[in-house]
């Protein structure tokens, strides 16, 4: 499907040549500088810092720096935590999205609003809130410790919880949108064939909304990977257990700016790859 879409979009070469031969006078006169100038400045503002990162990167020693144990440790921890956090978001977020999209109950609008709060909440505030609830003296944390002997703050599990808290709305919103867009009559057809609601969800709804689920999971993963504020507040900054890439970047900036640049480049590369994969594989595929 993606390939056919691409092949249907070739640039018309004859049209381009004709445009060059005879200067076009279509539209209504010159472009308004009042719009073009801010547009160009805005573009530069977004692109220049990234270009600066590439220009100032210590290219000759790049591989050597990437192979340093602290860097690898932070990278491994980041990838692990972001992946587990995404898995948690899928397990809880997809059913939550289904509930919001398919079941009408009083207070649904309020609940939908609440789900999006972590999206706009400053992550540090999220971290504080997590501490208050899941901290060792927190409402739930106290009980977790006395009953199961589990403590979350300042552990790798804490990093995962903080990342999941911040990233889950991305998944829920994406999946809920996919569910609302999916034709519910397929679910009716499945029901007439004897499928229970769980079977309908598993064998019909989920495959139909899969592009939305994958897009949501990728966004969720990217957000979890870049999480800083909630992580450092709730999980602290201990090498090997809670010091993820963004934390390592922040710390390295004070002592070893070049290391910070290298770490930043890795995160930038991951973001670009995610964006590219989203565009090509999932966003355009029906």
């Amino acid at each position: 499907m993606a390939t056919s879409e691409r092949s249907e979009r070739p640039v018309n070469p004859s049209g381009g040549a004709a445009g060059r031969a005879a200067p076009p006078r279509k539209g209504s006169g010159r472009l308004p500088w009042m719009l073009v100038l801010p547009a160009v400045l805005g573009l530069a503002f977004l692109v220049l810092p990234l270009a600066g990162l590439l220009i100032r990167a210590p290219w000759p020693t790049l591989l050597q720096r990437l192979a340093e144990p602290q860097v690898l440790e932070a990278l491994r921890l980041s990838l692990f935590c972001a992946t587990v956090a995404t898995a948690l978001c899928l397990v809880f977020g997809v059913p939550l999205a289904w509930l919001l999209a398919r079941v009408s109950f009083p207070g649904r609008r309020l609940m939908r609003a609440l789900v999006t709060v972590p999206l706009v909440l400053p992550p540090v505030v999220g971290g504080v809130a997590l501490l208050l609830v899941l901290g060792r003296r927190g409402l739930v944390g106290q009980w977790l410790e006395s009953t199961f002997g589990v403590t979350l703050p300042f552990t790798t599990a804490g990093v995962i919880v903080a990342e999941a808290f911040v990233a889950m709305p991305f998944l829920v919103i994406s999946v809920e949108g996919a569910l609302r867009g999916a034709d519910q009559r397929y679910e009716e057809a499945a029901a007439t064939l004897g499928a229970s609601r769980w079977t309908v969800f598993r064998r019909v709804t989920l495959p139909l909304i899969m592009p939305g689920v994958v897009a949501g999971a990728v966004l969720c993963w990217a957000r979890a990977l870049g999480e800083f504020g909630a992580t450092i507040t709730f999980a602290g900054n201990f090498p090997g257990t809670t010091r993820t890439m963004p934390l390592a970047v922040y710390l390295a900036l004070e002592t070893e700016p070049e290391a910070a640049i290298v770490l930043s480049l890795v995160l930038l590369a991951v973001s670009v790859i995610i964006l590219a994969s989203l565009r090509d594989r999932w966003v355009t595929t029906p």
């Binding site: 009716e188 057809a189 029901a191 007439t192 064939l193 004897g194 499928a195 229970s196």
Partner: peptide
């Protein structure tokens, strides 16, 4: 719906 002996 799913319990009814119907085909649609």
């Amino acid at each position: 719906v799913e319990e009814r002996p119907i085909g649609m």
